[in-house]
Amino acid sequence: MAEIQIKNVAKIFGAYQALHDINLTIADQEFMVLLGASGCGKSTLLRIIAGLETATTGEVWIGGRRIDHLSPKDRGIAMVFQNYAVFPHLTVFENIGFGLRMQKLPNDEVTRRVEKTATLMHIEQLLKRYSGELSGGQRQRVAVARALAMEPDVILMDEPLSNLDALLRMEMRAELKGVLADSKTTAIYVTHDQVEAMSMADRISVMHQGKIIQAAAPIEVYRNPSAEFVASFIGNPPMNFLPARPAGAGRWTVAGQTFDGPQADRAALQFAIRPEDMQPAEQGLTALAKVVEPLGAHLLVTCEVEGKLFRVILDSDMKVRPGETLTLAPQPDRIRWFDPETTLAVA
C-alpha cells in the first residue's frame, strides 16, 4: 500500500513563493499527473516528494509513514528524470542495476531484476552498450527500467517524454501507461503537455502559480473545469468565453440570446462553451467567420462574436468561407458558467 498524502506543503525560495499550501491525496496505485505551464511549481512539488528539495512547511506521507525528513533512498521511491540522467560511464546493465547495487543486493538478484525490467522495456539487446551509443528513445527506456528495477512503492516522473519527437512520444505514452499499470506502483507524473495528461492519468492535478486549481479525473477536468484557468488551459483550442447579463429567473443573456443558467444573484457571469459543443442552427449565437482551418478530421473556424474571439469545431464536410456569418447553437448541457470575480465555476 502506498497512498501518498501531501499536507499543507509550501515552498519559498528567497522572496518567491513557489508552492502555496498544497494538500493532495494520491491513492495506492493511482496514476496522478501534475499538469501546468512552466514555473507553476509542479516540478518543485515532485522534487519535494522525491527528497531533492525540502518543503518550507508541511508534511509528506507515503504508505502511512511520514517521509519528508528522510533521505531520498529511504522513501521507497524511484524517479525518471527529464534528461533521463542515464549515467554515461556505465553500461545499460549497470545503469539499470545502479540502485540495486547501492542496496547491496547479491549479484544474481541484480542480474535477474535487470534482465526482467530490460525485457519489459524491450532493451534486453542493449545491456552492454553505453548511453552515448543509444538513441533518445532508448535512453528513455533505460531510465524507466532503472526506476522499475527498484520495485518502488512510488515512481516519480519529471516530464519524461518531453525530449522525444512527437511520434515516439505517442508510442512511449501508451507503453509507459501499460507498464506502470502492470507494475502496480503509485505514479506521479509531471508534464506541461495536456494531451499526455489526458491520455495517461487516472487523475489530473492542474497547477497554476504554486496552487492546485483542480484535481479530478481527466474527463471531469475537461467537462467540468472548476475555474476559468482550467477551462482556458485544458483543451486545444480552449473553451470560449462570453460575458452574460442576468435576464431574471435563472435566465442569462449572452450576445443577444437568452440561455438557461444558474439561479445566481450576480450582476454578471461568464458563459463558457467548448468549440466542439456547437452546431449550426436556425437560432443561436451570431458569429462572423474570420479564419477557416481544415484539419482533416474536422474544420476549425475562428470567429468573432460581439467582437470577442470565438472558436468552433465543425464537421469537415461543412463549407465555410471567411467573412460568412454563422448561427451557432450551443449544446445546452455543455454550457458552463463562471463567476468573473472569483473566476470559479458557478453551478
Binding site: L52, K73, M79, N83, A85, F98
Partner: peptide
C-alpha cells in the same frame, strides 16, 4: 558534470561518498 546525475544517484541510494566514487 550535469547536476541530474547526482540527483539520480541520490534518489537511487548513493551516499555522498558513493556519489563521489561512482559519479
Amino acid at each position: 558534470i550535469p547536476k541530474e546525475y547526482y540527483e539520480a544517484a541520490e534518489v537511487f541510494g548513493a551516499s555522498p561518498w558513493k556519489r563521489f566514487l561512482r559519479i
